[in-house]
Amino acid sequence: MWRNVASNAFSFLVVILFLLGGIIIWGQSTYKAEGPLENAICLQVKPGSNMRRVSQDLAEQGAVSSAAIFRMGADYEEKTSQLKAGSFLVEAGTSMSDIVETVTKGGASTCGTEVVYRIGVNRVSVQVRELDPVSNRFEERAEFVPGTDEVPEVYVETKAQADTRFRIALAEGVTSWQVVNAMQAMDVLEGEAGEVPAEGTLAPDSYEVRPGDGRASVLERMAAAQQARIAEAWEARDPDLPIESPEELLTLASIVEKETGVAAERRQVAAVFVNRLNQGMRLQTDPTVIYGITKGEGVLGRGLRRSELRAETPWNTYVINGLPPTPIANPGRASLMAAAQPDESEFIFFVADGTGGHAFAKTLAEHNENVARWRQIEAERAAAQSEETTSGSGN
Rank of each mutant, 00 (worst) to 15 (best):
M1W: 05
W2R: 13
R3I: 14
V5K: 14
F10P: 08
W26H: 13
G27A: 11
S29L: 10
S29P: 02
S55H: 00
D57F: 06
A67K: 10
A68K: 11
I69Q: 04
F70H: 01
G86E: 12
S87I: 09
L89Q: 05
E101L: 15
G120I: 05
V121A: 04
S125I: 14
V128A: 07
E130W: 09
L131T: 00
D132Q: 14
D132H: 13
R137V: 14
F138N: 11
T148W: 11
D149N: 08
E153S: 07
V154F: 02
E157G: 01
E157Y: 10
E157S: 08
T158L: 03
A160F: 12
T164F: 09
T164I: 14
F166R: 10
W177H: 06
N181E: 14
A182T: 11
M183G: 00
Q184V: 09
M186E: 06
V188L: 07
L189T: 00
E190P: 03
A193I: 13
V196K: 01
G200S: 12
L202V: 11
A203L: 07
P204S: 10
S206F: 15
D213V: 13
V218W: 01
E220S: 06
R221E: 15
A224N: 12
A224W: 07
Q226T: 06
R229T: 12
A231V: 03
D238Q: 08
P242M: 03
I243W: 02
E247A: 13
E248Q: 15
L252F: 02
A253V: 08
V256W: 05
E259S: 07
G261F: 04
A263L: 10
R267G: 05
A270P: 01
A270E: 01
F273I: 03
N275L: 03
R282C: 05
L283P: 01
L283N: 01
T285G: 04
T288P: 03
I290E: 04
Y291T: 07
L304N: 04
R306F: 01
T313I: 03
A329Q: 07
A334S: 13
Q341D: 13
S345P: 11
I348S: 00
V351R: 00
V351A: 02
H358V: 08
T363S: 15
L364N: 07
E366G: 15
H367L: 03
N370Q: 05
Q376A: 02
E378N: 09
A379R: 04
A382P: 03
A383N: 07
E388C: 06
T390F: 04
G392M: 05
